[in-house]
């Protein structure tokens, strides 16, 4: 009895030491898999917004992801529905559609079909209109808008400006 209670204590003592060690190693393992500081530091891209031609989709790169930039034509701006207009981004008086070019379903790049002014995703058949709103499932929502900050006619992707914050707060993008 005396012995077994001593063994019981030793077992519990070992359990405590092992438990602390296990938690510690799990933290280390989790942190080891986090994106590296160099990866995070490279997560900002500055764009000169004055160079984009009207009505033509241009793809830029930010954090390895394609960024769709479409300077809207006059017909587009005039015909915008209320919900399409909520996604409108205005830099120095010019209207743009700006979005991360990855389908919100599972991340393929939808192709822009200029004739139909629509995006079609080849992977699982999702579709978006020219403003980035979803028109055919499976994507659960419109194309995501990257965090942006407007400075004059420049745009910094990766920083959160008041215009982006407003879109996020109103639920236009995630």
């Amino acid at each position: 009895m005396h012995n077994s209670s001593r063994r019981g204590f030793m077992g519990k003592a070992f359990g405590a030491v092992a438990g602390v060690g296990a938690v510690g190693s799990l933290v280390a393992m989790k942190k080891t898999w986090d994106p590296l500081p160099s990866v995070k530091a490279a997560g900002f891209t500055t764009l000169d917004m004055s160079i984009y031609p009207e009505g033509k989709l241009i793809t830029e790169k930010w954090r390895g992801k394609p960024i769709f930039i479409l300077r809207k034509t006059k017909e587009m701006i005039d015909s915008q529905t209320e919900s399409q207009a909520t996604r409108d981004i205005v830099v120095a008086g010019i209207h743009y559609m700006i979005a991360i070019g990855l389908c919100t379903h599972l991340g393929c790049i939808p192709a822009y079909i200029p004739a139909e002014k629509e995006f079609h995703c080849a992977c699982h058949g999702g579709q978006f209109d020219w403003s980035g709103q979803v028109t055919k499932t499976p994507p659960p929502r419109g194309l995501d808008i990257p965090p942006f900050k407007i400075e004059g006619n420049k745009m910094i992707l990766g920083e959160v400006g008041p215009e982006f914050q407003a879109m996020k707060d109103s639920g236009v993008t995630l």
Binding site: K30, W33, D34, P35, L36, V39, G43, R63, G64, K65
Partner: peptide, 13 residues
């Protein structure tokens, strides 16, 4: 997802 990738997209990590 970013934790699994170690990046914003599949890359070196």
């Amino acid at each position: 997802v970013e934790w699994i990738r170690g990046d914003y997209v599949p890359a070196q990590a």
